[in-house]
Nucleic acid binder design. Structure first.
Length: 208
DNA sequence: CGCCGGATGTCCT
DNA sequence: GGACATCCGGCGC
């Protein structure tokens, strides 16, 4: 039988904190509903960031940029990085706590043409590698700073909604986080089998 | 497939 | 001034 997490359960999950919530987000879907069209993706890779964590944007306290991390759980935190990329997170932990789960990769489940079009030239990549990075995922979903601090959960969450369609995918491996130079011992990257292998602490260089 | 370097804005030191 | 939760194209194997 098909079981689905309710919006209430999803909010409760986010409230538990980023480390607890992150692995449970594998298999959840993000529905993007914008004027140019509708699309949906299934989450295959996430990372947890907490407040007393030098790799976290919340480590140095509240700023206009990081405020959504400290807001109520279950809201989007979208930030701009490397001068050209957006990345999408879901705020976690109770209000006042600076935690979030970074959505690092996903596979398409609806609105393929739109997802591919938004990725531009790279839209010709196979499904598996169309959104195999946080900025690629954000681009495919059409995310920008306009989305930051908006609620992520609920029937009226728009233009971006985190929800459960009942489709589940298994946690395949747990590794250190990608692209950070501190706190590399913390294994807070959670991957489904579909997620890309990368050179990070804890990742096995060979598959199988 | 892997390595390397450039692009390019914002925030912190 | 440097770091940064990155991506892409070019080149070599």
């Amino acid at each position: 039988m098909l079981t689905r997490l309710t919006d209430r359960a999803l909010r409760s999950l986010c409230a538990q904190g980023a480390v607890a919530a992150a692995p449970e987000m594998l298999g959840l879907i993000v529905v993007s509903n914008r004027p140019e069209g509708r699309c949906a993706v299934r989450i295959t890779e996430v990372e947890a960031y907490v407040e007393h964590d030098p790799a976290s944007h919340s480590f140095r306290g509240v700023t206009p940029r990081t405020a959504p991390m400290f807001g109520p759980p279950g809201h989007w935190y979208v930030y701009f990085t490397y001068g050209m990329h957006w990345c999408v997170n879901v705020s976690c932990g109770p209000r006042g706590t600076g935690e979030a789960v970074l959505l690092r990769a996903a596979v398409p489940i609806a609105g393929m043409e739109l997802l591919r079009a938004r990725r531009g030239k790279a839209g010709r990549a196979p499904d598996r590698s169309l959104m195999d990075g946080p900025a690629k995922l954000a681009q495919a979903l059409g995310c920008t700073g306009d989305d930051t601090a908006l609620p992520a959960i609920g029937a009226h969450a728009r233009p971006l909604r985190l929800t459960d369609d009942g489709g589940r995918i298994a946690l395949d491996r747990v590794t250190g986080r990608v692209g950070i130079s501190v706190a590399q011992d913390l294994r807070w990257r959670f991957c489904a089998a579909e997620a890309p292998v990368r050179k990070v602490p804890g990742e096995r260089p060979l598959s199988g």
